[in-house]
Amino acid sequence: MANLFSVFEPSSSIFSAPMNWLSTFLGLVFMPFIYWASPSRWSLLWSNIIQTLHKEFKALLNPSHVGASTLFVGLFSLIIFNNFLGLLPYVFTSSSHLVMTLSLSLPLWMTLMLFGWLNCTAHMFAHLVPQGTPFFLMPFMVLIETISNLIRPGTLAVRLAANMIAGHLLLTLLGNTGPSLSLSILFILVFSQILLLILESAVAIIQSYVFAVLSTLYTSEIN
Rank of each mutant, 00 (worst) to 15 (best):
S96N: 07
M124F: 07
L150N: 03
A161M: 01
I14D: 06
V213H: 06
F211K: 04
T70V: 13
L195I: 10
L87K: 04
H97W: 05
P139D: 02
S69V: 00
F125H: 15
V210Y: 11
S64E: 14
A212K: 01
L102C: 06
L71M: 13
E9Y: 14
P153K: 05
V142W: 00
S40H: 00
Q131F: 11
G175C: 11
L186Y: 06
L214S: 10
Q131A: 13
L171W: 06
H65S: 06
Y35W: 12
E221P: 03
N176E: 10
T146G: 08
G154T: 09
Q193C: 10
V203N: 03
A59F: 05
H127R: 14
L186I: 01
S69E: 15
Y218H: 13
V203L: 07
E200G: 02
P39N: 04
Q51L: 12
I80L: 05
W42M: 11
E9C: 12
L98E: 01
F33A: 14
T70C: 08
G67S: 05
V7E: 09
L87W: 05
T172K: 14
L199K: 10
T155P: 04
S184E: 14
L189S: 05
A126W: 05
A157L: 00
T155G: 05
E221M: 12
A166P: 01
P134F: 08
P107Q: 05
Q193P: 04
Y35Q: 12
L112R: 01
N3H: 15
M113E: 08
S77F: 09
T121M: 10
S13Y: 03
Q131W: 11
S103H: 01
S201H: 02
H123I: 08
L214E: 14
T70K: 13
L61M: 06
P10F: 01
A17P: 00
L199Y: 12
P63K: 02
S184R: 11
S105R: 04
V210L: 15
A2V: 09
L137N: 14
R159M: 15
Q193V: 06
A162T: 06
F125I: 14
L108K: 01
V190T: 08
L189E: 05
W46D: 10
S148H: 13
P139M: 06
Q207E: 15
I185E: 13
F33P: 07
M113L: 10
A68L: 09
L85K: 12
L183D: 11
A204N: 00
G86E: 03
A37Q: 15
L44D: 12
L156E: 04
T177L: 13
S23A: 08
S192T: 10
I49G: 03
E221Y: 11
P89I: 07
P130T: 02
L108Y: 05
S180Q: 15
P153G: 02
A68R: 07
L112W: 01
L186M: 09
I79S: 02
A161C: 05
A204L: 03
L160F: 01
L137Q: 15
M110A: 13
T172C: 08
P89M: 06
